[in-house]
């Protein structure tokens, strides 16, 4: 194929009913609620912004230390501090509504009822494009991790949210399961509009001098380049199993990382921990993806997604 002008490339993509101008999102928990990065990143250039996890009421999160840098990754147990639904809507939605970028709210709860209530509340809020369901935060003691790894619990929470909202629903899958396809299929069967994966991988690190854990929570979730091969494998398996769109994430910091995910079937990708290293990572990825497709003579992502040839 011969190259085409970059202006001839259309990066737009529809993910579960959410129209994105490009397939590059910023992942929940790595971009705050938007204002934190607004001086450094043109939020209008992002495919979507996925805000940090919100539950019903304000929460303080875990004690410190909350993160530890490890080889090619970051271990975290932040514990989902946040302003709660009302605090988020009041404090951050006026800011987020200024942008022509879909806002996807990552939601979580301690119980199935709380998940459903949070979804119901957001259903009424103007300017929200969709809900990503955090069933797999490894750092919350009160049951949340189980929602992501127990298939029956997973079905129940996704069903409850589906009944509570008409917004596009995107369950975010846990990587530490024996068969990712079972969760992907269950999400699809429960009426999920898309799935996203992977969440952080459970891990821990020990300070050999003090013999203490490096995180106050002892265990945490591993993110960053270290988990990318795990994520690529799981996205490949999940994408083969379902026909709803898959949003791929896990160690994506540059276009070549993202291309792996597109090739194995992701319709969109999210930049996570790389935002901390390089705030410009997501917008640079958009430019580089456009340039790559143009050089390949591809006018859209269609020629790329799922064309992995084992």
């Amino acid at each position: 194929m011969s190259a085409i002008p970059v202006t001839a490339v259309d990066l737009s993509v529809n993910v579960g009913g959410i129209a994105l101008k490009n397939p590059v999102m910023v992942a929940s928990g790595t971009f705050g609620y938007g204002p934190e990065y607004a001086d450094l990143v043109d939020i209008n250039r992002l495919g979507a912004i996925v805000v940090k996890g919100i539950c019903l009421n304000p929460t303080k999160g875990n004690p410190t230390p909350r993160t530890a840098e490890v080889a090619s990754g970051l271990l975290n147990a932040i514990g989902l501090p946040g302003p709660g639904v009302d605090g988020f809507v009041r404090t951050y939605m006026p800011f987020l509504r200024q942008y022509a970028t879909p806002v996807i709210v990552n939601i979580w709860g301690k119980t199935i009822e709380e998940y459903a209530e949070v979804a119901r509340r957001f259903d009424q809020v103007e300017g929200i494009a969709g809900l990503e369901v955090n069933v797999s935060c490894p750092n919350i003691k009160e049951g949340s991790a189980l929602f992501g790894t127990d298939l029956d619990m997973f079905r129940r929470v996704v069903d409850a949210i589906r009944a509570a909202t008409r917004l596009p629903m995107i369950p975010k899958l846990a990587p530490n399961v024996a068969d990712i396809t079972a969760f992907a299929k269950a999400a699809e069967a429960s009426g999920a509009n898309a799935i996203s994966l992977i969440n952080s991988f459970p891990g821990m690190a020990v300070d050999i001098k003090t013999r203490k854990p490096k995180l106050a929570n002892i265990t945490g979730g591993l993110t960053g380049p270290a988990i990318r091969p795990i994520a690529v494998r799981l996205v490949w398996q999940a994408a083969k199993a379902v026909s709803i769109p898959v949003i791929g994430m896990g160690g994506i910091g540059a276009v070549n990382d993202a291309l792996e995910f597109f090739l194995v079937g992701a319709r969109a990708v999210a930049v996570g921990t790389a935002n901390f290293t390089n705030p410009a990572a997501a917008v640079t990825l958009v430019d580089d993806l456009r340039a790559y497709l143009a050089a390949q003579g591809m006018a859209s992502l269609d020629g790329l997604v799922g064309t992995f040839a084992p």
Binding site: E36, L74, N275
Partner: peptide, 15 residues
């Protein structure tokens, strides 16, 4: 304090 992102997003450096 130890920091992650430096801009207020990651909530590593809280006190």
């Amino acid at each position: 304090n130890n920091m992650g992102c430096g801009v207020g997003a990651c909530l590593t450096c809280v006190l």
